[in-house]
Each structure stands twice: as C-alpha cells, then as structure tokens.
Nucleic acid binder design. Structure first.
Length: 741
DNA sequence: AGCACGCCGACT
DNA sequence: GTCGGCGTGCTC
C-alpha cells in the first residue's frame, strides 16, 4: 500500500459539461491511491446543488481555491480511462482551437449514456447463428419459402451471426426466422461476439481496378503506419468505394481498425451492405437515426476492439480506437461535417489532427473537393490522388445551359425543358428535377395592397404548405392556418408567389398524364425509412419523374435517370456569402453525376437567366477543376479563405439594440488587445437580422496569420465572458465558419 | 446550462 | 398573509 500524504491529498482538476471556460478542482477520495487516478476517467462530483459527471483532466499538488473550499469527489466511475492519451490530447487541442469549454468538448466525445454516468459495459444485442445443420444446408432447397431462404443465406454469409436489427433488412423477417428456429437450423448465439482477430477478414472478391484506382490504393497502402493526408478526387462512378475497400482490407490484415466518416444523408444502407458483403469482421454503425443505446454499443464495441470498422457521421469522430489504422472521410466537401451549434468543430479538420496524433493516414474523398482541400493538395501538404475516369463504360453526361430570359415558365418549367422531359418519358426513362425550395410557394401576397405573409418572429416570409393548409416559417417553429382574406385590406385576391417542390409536384401530373411523380424533400422523408422506401421505388422503376431538393443530389444513384434539370440554378449565383459559389458548383457537379449510367448517356439541363455567368460557363467548359482554379484565384485576390483564416462572433438577444452595442464594445476592446493586424469586420446585422424572436448581429475576424488570429481570440474570449455580465444576450464563436448566416 | 436566492404582483 | 413570476449570480 503506497503512502498517502494526509496533509496534502492530491487535487483533482476536472472538466464539467457546462458552458464555462474554466476547470474545477476537487479533493481526491482519501482511500484512493494517486496512481489509480488517470486523466480521462469519469467521476461523479457535487456541483452547486446537484451532482454532475466530471472528466478528470489532471492530478495536481495545489489548487488556486483554498483547501477547505474543495469538495470531495462522490465516486470514481471508470477504473481506467475510456479514452487513450492521444485522444485526450485531441480534445484539449479542439477546445483550444475552437475556443469551446473543455467539459463540453469531452461531452461531445462520449455517447449520451456515458455522458450521464452509465457504466461502460458493452451490452451486445442477441445474435442469431446457424446450427451445424443450418450451416450444411443448401439454401436452394428453400425456394418455396423465399423469406427463409433469404435469412438463411444472410446467416451463412455472417459467421458471427446477425442481430435482430440486421435481420430486419429482410421485410417481415420474424415469422420466417421462427420457422428456421423451429427447424433447428438457427439458434440464439451464446457468449460474446467473437473478437475480430479470430475471424477470416475478407469474404467478397475485390473488383478489378483500373490503373488510377490501383495507383491510389498502393499509394495509401504504402503510407499505412504513419501520418499523411490523401485527397482522393474521384468523379462520380469512378469507383472510390472500391478504392476504400481495398485499402481497408490492408488495414484489417494488419489487425487494425478503420474509422469511416460520412455525411448525414449519405449514410445509406447500401454502403453498409457493400462493406458487410466484403468484410467478415464486425462492423459498427453510428448515426443520428439510431437510438442512444445503439450508438453507445457502437462506441463501446470499437473502444473494446470487438469491431474493426466503424461507419459513422460527424459525432463518431471521437470514438476510441485501441488499434487505430486509418481514417476515411468521404464526401469531404460536405458542410454537414461542420457542427453548426454549440461545439462548432469541423469533423474534417479534427480528423486530420487526430490522424496526426495517432500517426495514421487520413483519406479525404470527394468528386468535388472543398477549395481548402484542393489548395492543400496543390501546395503539396496533401497527397493528391485522382480518379478521372468513370469505371465501366459509363459516358459523361451532356450538360447544357438553358437560357430562360424572356421565356414564359409554366410552374418554373420552360417550354424547351418541357419538350425534353416529354421525349425522355416517351423513351420510358426517368427524369430528375431539382428545385431547392420545399413547400408550395415561398410567398403569399395580396394583389390589392401588396401585403405579404411574414413571420412574426423572423425576418422571413411564411412559406405556403398547401396540403396541410398552413403558412409555415422555415426558420422557427412558427405556423398558422392559411388566411383567406388579406389581414391588411380585407381583399380576397391572396396569391401564392414563387415556386416550391409541393407546387411543382401538383402540376406535373396535368403536364404528363399517366406518369408517376415522387417528391423527395424534408417534408416527404421525415418518417424513418421513408427515404429508403422512395429510393427503392425509384430504382425499381415505379417512378417516372423524381422531384426534390438538394438532398437528392447527395450520394444516391438512379441508374435509369437520363435527364436531370435544375429549375432554379440562379438562386445560388448571387449571394453575400462567398462560400455559395463553391456550394453551387459542387451541387451542380453532384447533380451531373446522377445522370446517365452504363449504356445510357445522360443529359443535364440548367435553367438560368445568367447563361454568361463565369461560374456556369467555366464549370461546363472546364469542369469542376476549372471552376476551382478560377474560384481559388478569386479567393487569393480577395485574401479570403483558404488564403486567410476567419472566426465569426455571433450575438443574439431579444432586445433589438443590445447586440450591436455589445459587438461595438467587443470591437473596441479587440482593437486594444491585438498586437497584429487582424481585420475586424462589422458589427453587421446577420443576414437574417431577426430569427425566432431574437435579434442577431455578428463580427467577423480575419487574418492571413492563423497564429495571430488565434492569439487575439485567446485573450478576447475571457474578456467577452466578463462583459456578458450585463446579461440578456448570448454569444458564440465560430472558428472557420462555413456558413456566414 | 441548471439551480437557488430574492424581491414585487394576484390569489386562497 | 403567501404562492410564484423570472432577474441575478454562482458553481471547485
């Protein structure tokens, strides 16, 4: 028993999940040996009048707080830290870089249950496995019972067995499984899920690769075991997934784990299935549609090394990896990798820092890389791997700008486009229409007096939702029934103005009688599984016209679509946010990737009133890389990111004047504090000056020198915290903002 | 963020 | 008389 110095029991410095830029000290329990205390352990502590979960940051000799003010820790929750030292380093780095309270950063790294103090016990769901008889059975004999045959084959492909959740991939699986159980071909698996080391790794056969794919695979594989960032730029259909899988195979053969991060909407079961067909290892999945328990299971199964692959979204980034081998971040340009509230981290940027700390490669994949990543690739900081060719025989679609100046539009569709759609439908091929606005119409206007239905809480018009007969604000929870008479002049000529997906959906059947229309937007895909259902219907040919918002463009494949049109191309052309050109170009290229597969060449039509706009003409003439070159030149000339670094300080309050006054004070203070020459722009009203009843202002900091900006923010944030004492106001700092709204 | 303390308006 | 509104301040 080591000696416990009673006069100087150690001080435990902890981070707590509260929005305070400060740590708290506690007295260590007298019965515990100091060696048993390691940073990262979760503790239960008294905090104010409640109990909270705390994360041990360090064991100190002394505290700035007097000894008798230190409360004792209630309980130590983890015998050993759940996070490795490198991951703790990562959290410290992120808290500093994003100027976010360490306790909240720690909280973001843990699943909800562990955040609340639940025991870190891996509770695996029950699995069904084949009996010897079931394993020996030829599934062909079950052709009269297709569900049973499907389940049996799935189980024969999964030596580890399958959970109920996985079996649910077969519709109405329960009765069929009951039969298999009754026939003694299937039993409930006993004991733990077998550890991966004991398993064969691969079962599917790799697809043969073209030279570019092979080159990419071997470059990354040569880099395994040390840090490096690879930008894998592959046009749609160039076989990026196959490249990922063959690299992953190598990592698995080294006995290491792989973290695959995907944007929220792309996380389709298709990708998971491809992985499960190829690899026999245990695969964990984590995204927002799962329950907290399921996500905790995924986290712990990686943490304990039971699974070797994790497919997850942004929040899965911090999952512990005892045998880290590789991080892949697919669709790296996607802005859903940036958390937009609270701890505003970029999963892409933090993934790179994590790769560096773990000394493993990071692969960023995209058909339309962000300008930041392209710049890093061009300047040699990242290795640039390009897959310029579509795999197989697929030919690139024809892209055309359709000038709609002075052209009559029928519900947003020009006569020329109408004719193209008819032709395509006549050939029994599918049409995809994009309109980036949901609802029926974005405005309800009175013909007599010009009154417009506006949200009482936001600087925004109310959007008409025809089916529900509601006027709804897309920026807050506000909604009301559609008014029949003008509240201003009592006139009855209220007219919907503008276009939404719902309105186009209504008119399409009259334009194309007998054709089936499927609308895909946030309103039609809210229910769990409905997006998957629609996607299946589309690919089974049960739809002629697919109409939707941008969510359609992301990662879904529609092999029978040969005509794609963007109805409202121009809406992204002239925006105050300099990111919008990049986002529009990425969207257009992603859309182009939806058209034409295999033997059927596709056509893409962009309706525009600005057919000479350089963004559009360059994009079409020279492709995404031509656009990117031009856009980077413009960014360089204007000293915008990636040629400078930004941070956006947002303030909101229910009082209309306070935010501006407050930010003016901050600006004055920042001018005094700074030693360098950080540009301070503003304060200006946020593009939507009032939202959900709160008035919003912002102040933009910009500097070519990241260090200087970082230092200014370091000294400024505590000062802001003190100033805030004059209440009634909330502020947040967004480092590297991707959305200036 | 919670939560308690505190000081002014309409209720049994 | 007091129940409760949410403004203010604190959390080792």
């Amino acid at each position: 028993m080591p000696e416990l110095p009673q006069d100087h029991p150690p001080v435990l410095r902890v981070a707590i999940d509260v929005p305070l830029h400060r740590l708290f000290d506690y007295a260590a329990p007298e019965t515990i040996a100091p060696e048993a205390l390691k940073p990262g352990q979760r503790l239960a502590v008294p905090f104010g009048s409640t109990q909270k979960i705390a994360y041990l940051v360090g064991v100190e000799e002394v505290s700035e707080v007097s000894r008798k003010q230190l409360k004792p820790v209630t309980r130590i929750l983890d015998q050993a830290p759940l996070l490795a030292p490198d991951d703790l380093r990562l959290l410290h780095w992120a808290a500093r870089y994003y100027h976010h309270p360490l306790g909240e950063v720690f909280a973001a790294a843990f699943p909800v249950g562990l955040r609340q103090g639940k025991a870190a016990i891996l509770d695996l769901p029950i699995r069904y496995v084949l009996t010897d008889a079931g394993r020996a059975l030829d599934s062909a004999g079950l052709h009269r019972a297709p569900k049973q045959k499907q389940l049996l084959e799935a189980l024969q492909n999964s030596p580890n067995g399958l959970s109920e959740e996985q079996l649910a991939a077969v519709e109405n699986w329960r009765p069929a499984l009951k039969q298999l159980l009754a026939k003694d071909w299937v039993k409930i698996g006993d004991g733990d899920m077998p550890a991966d080391a004991a398993l064969p790794l691969i079962k599917g056969t790799p697809i043969e690769c073209n030279p570019e794919q092979s080159a990419a695979i071997s470059e990354v594989c040569d880099g395994l075991g040390r840090f490096g960032v690879f930008l894998l730029e592959g046009v749609t259909g160039s076989g990026k997934t196959e490249v990922y899988m063959q690299i992953i195979r190598e990592v698995l053969e080294r006995g290491q784990q792989v973290l695959v991060l995907l944007p929220e909407i792309t996380l389709t079961p298709q990708l998971e299935n491809r992985f499960r067909q190829r690899f026999a290892v245990n695969i964990a999945v984590s995204h927002s549609k799962l329950t907290d328990t399921q996500r905790q299971t995924a986290w712990l199964s990686m943490q304990q090394g039971v699974c070797s692959i994790l497919l997850g979204t942004r929040s899965a980034l911090f999952t512990p990896l005892p045998r880290p081998g590789l991080i892949i971040l697919d669709e790296e340009h996607d802005t859903s990798f940036k958390q937009q509230e609270g701890f505003r981290f970029s999963a892409r940027d933090v993934a790179i820092v994590r790769g560096k700390l773990l000394n493993i490669p990071v692969v960023l994949g995209s058909a339309t890389p962000s300008l930041e990543s392209l710049y890093n690739a061009q300047s040699g900081r990242y290795r640039w791997l390009q897959l310029p060719n579509r795999a197989g025989n697929a030919s690139a679609p024809r892209v055309r700008l359709l000038d709609i100046r002075n052209k009559a539009l029928h519900e947003g569709i020009s006569a020329a486009l109408l004719a193209e759609i008819r032709q395509t439908l006549d050939k029994n091929e599918q049409v995809l229409l994009f309109l980036n606005r949901r609802g029926f119409a974005p405005t309800l206007i009175c013909h007599d007096c010009g009154w417009v239905a506006r949200c009482a809480h936001c600087d925004a018009n109310l959007v008409i939702h025809f089916r529900e007969q509601k006027l709804r604000c897309h920026h807050c929870a506000g909604e009301q029934p559609i008014v029949k008479f003008c509240p201003s002049c009592t006139g009855s000529t209220l007219t919907p103005l503008g276009l939404g997906t719902e309105r186009v959906e209504q008119v399409l059947p009259t334009l194309f009688p007998g054709k089936t229309v499927i609308r895909l937007d946030r309103d039609t895909t809210q229910r769990k599984g409905s997006l998957e259902k629609y996607l299946r219907q589309i690919n089974e040919g049960q739809a002629d016209i697919i109409l939707g918002t941008q969510m359609l463009a992301k990662g879904h494949h529609f092999p029978n679509v040969t005509l794609v049109a963007i109805l409202d191309t121009d809406s992204g052309l002239y925006s105050i946010d300099f990111h919008s050109a990049e986002k529009l170009a990425q969207m257009i290229v992603q859309v182009i990737g939806r058209a034409g597969r295999e033997d059927k060449p596709g056509t893409v039509i962009l309706q525009t009133r600005h057919p000479e706009h350089p963004l559009l003409t360059t994009l079409i003439r020279e492709g995404y890389n031509g656009f990117a070159r031009q856009a980077l030149d413009e960014r360089r000339a204007a000293a915008l990111p990636p040629f400078s670094h930004q941070a956006l300080l947002r303030v909101q309050a229910s009082d209309a004047f306070r935010p501006k006054v407050f930010l003016e004070e901050v600006k004055k203070l920042a001018g005094k504090l700074q030693a360098g020459e950080t540009l301070i722009l503003g304060p200006v009203a946020a593009p939507m000056a009032k939202r959900a009843g709160l008035y919003r202002y912002q102040l933009l900091f910009q500097d070519v020198n990241r260090q200087a900006l970082q230092q200014l923010l370091d000294s400024l944030t505590p000062a802001i915290d003190k100033m805030k004492k004059e209440k009634h106001l909330r502020w947040s700092l967004d480092v590297d903002p991707v959305d200036l709204y």
